[in-house]
Design a protein around this nucleic acid. Sequence first.
RNA 1: GCGCCUCUAGCUCAACGGCAGAGCAACGGACUCUUAAUCCGCAGGUUCCCGGUUCGAAUCCGGGGGGGCGCACCA
Length: 506
Amino acid sequence: MTNETDPPSEDAAAPTLDALIAERRRKRETLADQGIDPYPARFDRTALAAELHDRHADLEPDARTGERVRLAGRVTAVRRHGKLSFATVADTSGSIQLLLQATSLSGQAAVVLESVDLGDWIGAEGEVITSRRGELSVDTTELWLLSKALRPLPDKWHGLTETDTRYRQREVDLLANPDSRRVFEIRFAAIAAMRRLMESEHYVEVETPILQPQAGGAIARPFFTHANALDIDLSLRIAPELYLKRLVVGGFERVFEIARNFRNEGVSTRHSPEFTALEAYRALGDVTDGMELTEALVLAAAEAATGRTVFAAGDVEIDLAGPWPRRQLLDLLEERLGRRVHPTDPLEDLRAVCEEHGVTPLPGWGPGKLVFELYDQVLLPGIVDPLFVVGFPVEVSPLARHTAGDPTMADRFELCIVAKEFANGYSELNVPEEQAERFEFSAAAKAGGDAEAHPADQAFVRALEYGLPPTAGIGIGIDRLIMLLAEVDAIRDVILFPMLRPEATN
RNA sequence: GCGCCUCUAGCUCAACGGCAGAGCAACGGACUCUUAAUCCGCAGGUUCCCGGUUCGAAUCCGGGGGGGCGCACCA
């Protein structure tokens, strides 16, 4: 293995990407020529990098442990010093250094080391030691190639910065940018924690249709598709709400779904056409129980994912530590506007108040919508720390129970943090006739050209006629919650494969 | 949809009307304690695409494409 007298291969192609790949293929063939399988079927690993760091945190420099381990991971750095080399290997838990001495390596290990490239998956066996500089290392005797990286990795120091490539080739982003990986670790830890909480509260996780004859449960424009077998047009769901309440009618008293929703609307830093919401319904509860559950879920997610309650959001810090204040929307508006407003006020008055505060009323807006817009455009931007805003106009809450003694207001809350809505919930409307009436009203708006008005859903009304118990419902925007916990400001940074235009074909 | 910004070697970036360059990665070499290793050498380009202006275009202009940000719609 020491015939190093060959001149540089004279047919070396130009080191464009193709040539870099060809070079790595050549190395792979070199191994195969020597009887080394470049794609072995499996590997028995006995230790993870992080375990070793935990177990041997206090070793002196130049120490030996006598502990032999088998590691596997991706090569992220190689430092060659002639007969001594160092390599850094990253596995799912973290990174660890391999120390590779020519005098210790097996014949195969030496051959594998000769051809190893940044990005290759390797397995290594050796003794856990510390280097003379004190770095925990594996004094390697055996080395296996587990899978060849034919494509070169991004710059090990700068990583991958081009957003386009980060989103299109998320796998490369994840392996090259630790921060990106961290965001998704937070995401999935948070979701798992919320699932655990729901389970401990005896909610059943269910699945409802994504392909629906008629998209309901929210005010939004759906995507459409077509089912060939039935020759019918279908919508992709905009919310699971109506189906979940039908399950409560059916006797599943506590249900939840972590639902991917689809809305054919604008794309922005805060909006993705495809987004995830947790919706939960609890029989016998009301809007108060909904707020309690919402707060518990967010805190459980924050605790499990980060262990903190204080987060940076832009240039402000917010503290999630509860309990969160619960304030009536109409009271908050009175404080902000200097006068009391209510959906029963004359339309012209409400329009005047809107104009006065920079909200331009649109022609179709009723009094409830005007009040809601005052909230959305005037009140919401000023909210920083978590706040439950309670009591919304019925006009903009077609599925919520109206407030006792006030048919124009609904027992509904929104959770607001740093000027954004994070969750929404209410006492569910369970009077079939009233629901049918609300649907008629919104269906008229839809017929009048409002593409986002809620459609009448007869199957849902029929379900209510079998009896929906008093029920609390909530919906939490998972992506936005993750943005908060991970302290990133683009929703695409918390979605693994965000929607993009297709790549240009070569 | 509208406005602004952006696209140069595999990656990260220079050059801003005058020979398209550097660092990392690659390739050849030296090196048994490095950790962004170091040193010597070598190679690498459809400057996103099409067109125009110009003696000369990565650079200026027009059109197109990808992406980002802002506005609008929405959560």
